[in-house]
Simulated scan of single mutants.
Amino acid sequence: MAVRVDVSELRTLSTAMARIPDKVQRGVRPVVSKGALNIKQELQMDLASSQSFRGITFSVNYDVKVTAGGVEAEIGPDKDKYGGALANVAIFGTSRGGGTVPDPSIALMAEADRFETALGDLFKGLL
Rank of each mutant, 00 (worst) to 15 (best):
M1W: 02
A2C: 15
A2I: 11
V3S: 00
R4N: 14
V7D: 03
E9M: 12
S14R: 08
A16W: 04
M17I: 08
R19W: 00
I20A: 07
P21M: 02
R26N: 02
R29N: 02
P30Y: 03
S33R: 02
K34G: 10
G35W: 05
L37T: 03
I39G: 13
I39R: 00
K40I: 13
L43V: 11
L43E: 02
Q44I: 14
M45Y: 05
A48R: 01
S49P: 08
S50F: 03
Q51R: 12
S52K: 13
S52G: 14
R54L: 08
G55H: 07
F58Q: 04
V64C: 08
G70F: 11
V71Y: 08
A73F: 02
E74W: 15
P77I: 11
K79Y: 14
G83H: 09
G83P: 11
G84W: 09
A90S: 12
A90Q: 06
F92Y: 15
G93K: 04
S95H: 08
G99M: 09
T100K: 10
S105I: 05
I106C: 07
I106M: 12
L108P: 08
A110E: 13
A110C: 04
E111T: 03
D113H: 09
F115C: 06
T117S: 11
T117H: 11
A118R: 01
L119W: 05
G120H: 11
D121C: 05
L122D: 14
F123M: 04
F123K: 00
L127A: 08
